Simulated assay, not measured.
Amino acid sequence: MSEFSELHDELRSVAADLLAKGTVDWPLLVSAGWIGLDAPEEAGGAGATFAEVAVICEELGRAAATTSYLGGAVLAIGALNSLQPNVSRDALLQAVVAGNTRTVLALPGTGGPAPFDLATTRLGWWVHGRASFAPDAAGAQRLLLPARDADGVAVLVDVAVDAPGLTVTEQPVLDETRRLATVTAEGVEVDEDAVWKFDGDTEEQLRKLTDRAALAVACDSLGVAQAMLDTTVSYTGVRQQFGRPIGSFQAVKHACADMLVTISVARQLVRAAIAAPEPTAISMAKAYATEAAVEVAGKAMQLHGGIGYTWESGVHVYLKRAALNRSLFGSPAEHRAKISARYR
């Protein structure tokens, strides 16, 4: 990725400036061109790769920004890109990139990746199932439901959020910067042309979607951890104790150095997973980076002293986000179990 380092630095700088302005709504994400970063050019996208998407994910974590980027862009575009081209799919992809239709992949944050069942009867096609902790499903106009047909083959089903039998219920979580929801389908009737097949091996494509989600969260956690280190170094450089900055004390120096080392390891693992997105590398990045963010945010709160525990400091926002990231799309223990299973 070295040949793209200048592009990534520029993208990171623009993202940081944009996110520093405060509230980042959906139209602003569309106008910035972030929604269709890795969508094909013929669909109106930039034709970039996940490496560029990862830069945005990291900056969103660094700013602890409240957006619908994870579900409405990272997962939605990834899902549409993984499907066999057809008229309906192509039209929706173009509408998503243009910002005309808010579409979200109802990928559960915990549990199996295809929690819905597609039943075919002489009366039509019906979808049943439930996805919990689906990012950004609330507020979307259309949902892509990962389902299995009667033969157990994974497909994506395109449904409108106001379809009879479909309910989207927001799930309150400790982290107020993310919006998660439960999507329940109780006999939702769909047309045959709304059932879309994956392009290539269906199980591999479904796995790639869950891996993409896990890696995006790892990138977000990397941004969270970096923000906490930067904030802590800045604070300890100005906070006076016994007539000098507390950052000059050896114990504080060692704590900040430990945070830096932890983040450096996490960054290397995330970069390796982006460069070669195979399951083991992604599980290593997700397990380490999300756990590291919780550790770094916890140390940041301690090094801020009493003010770190106040609502005004803002450290709690990052700690809550890091804690949720650690659980979404596989806990560190679950990902380590995946890694160990590959070597048995």
Rank of each mutant, 00 (worst) to 15 (best):
V104S: 15
V104H: 07
L105H: 08
L105W: 13
A106L: 01
A106I: 04
L107F: 12
L107T: 02
L107M: 08
P108S: 11
G109M: 08
T110R: 15
T110I: 15
G112R: 15
P113E: 10
P113Q: 04
A114W: 13
A114C: 14
P115E: 05
P115S: 05
F116E: 07
F116I: 06
D117C: 06
L118I: 12
A119G: 03
A119E: 13
A119K: 11
T121A: 14
T121G: 15
T121D: 14
R122F: 15
L123H: 12
L123F: 13
L123Y: 08
L123P: 00
G124Y: 12
G124D: 08
G124E: 08
W125N: 14
W125F: 15
W125V: 05
W125S: 12
W125P: 01
W126Q: 06
W126T: 11
W126I: 11
W126E: 01
H128M: 05
H128P: 00
H128L: 06
G129P: 02
G129K: 07
R130N: 13
A131K: 02
A131F: 02
A131L: 02
S132A: 14
F133A: 03
F133W: 02
A134Q: 01
A134L: 01
P135T: 04
P135H: 01
P135C: 04
P135R: 01
D136S: 09
A137V: 05
A137C: 14
A138M: 06
A138P: 03
A138F: 01
A140R: 04
A140S: 15
Q141G: 10
Q141I: 06
R142P: 03
L143W: 00
L144M: 10
L144A: 04
P146V: 05
P146A: 04
A147Q: 07
A147G: 04
A147H: 01
A147I: 00
A147D: 03
A147Y: 04
D149I: 00
D149R: 00
D149T: 08
A150H: 06
A150L: 06
D151P: 00
D151I: 01
D151Q: 11
G152I: 00
G152L: 03
G152W: 00
V153M: 09
A154C: 09
V155H: 10
V155W: 04
V155N: 07
L156R: 04
D158S: 12
D158Y: 04
V159G: 02
V159Q: 00
D162H: 09
D162W: 05
A163T: 08
A163N: 09
P164Q: 10
P164W: 05
G165W: 08
G165I: 03
G165M: 12
L166Y: 05
L166T: 06
T167G: 11
T167V: 09
T167P: 00
V168L: 11
T169H: 11
E170L: 10
E170F: 02
Q171T: 14
P172M: 07
P172K: 12
P172R: 08
P172Q: 09
L174K: 15
L174D: 11
L174G: 07
D175P: 08
E176F: 11
E176Q: 15
E176D: 15
T177W: 00
T177Q: 12
R178N: 02
R178D: 05
L180S: 02
L180A: 02
A181S: 13
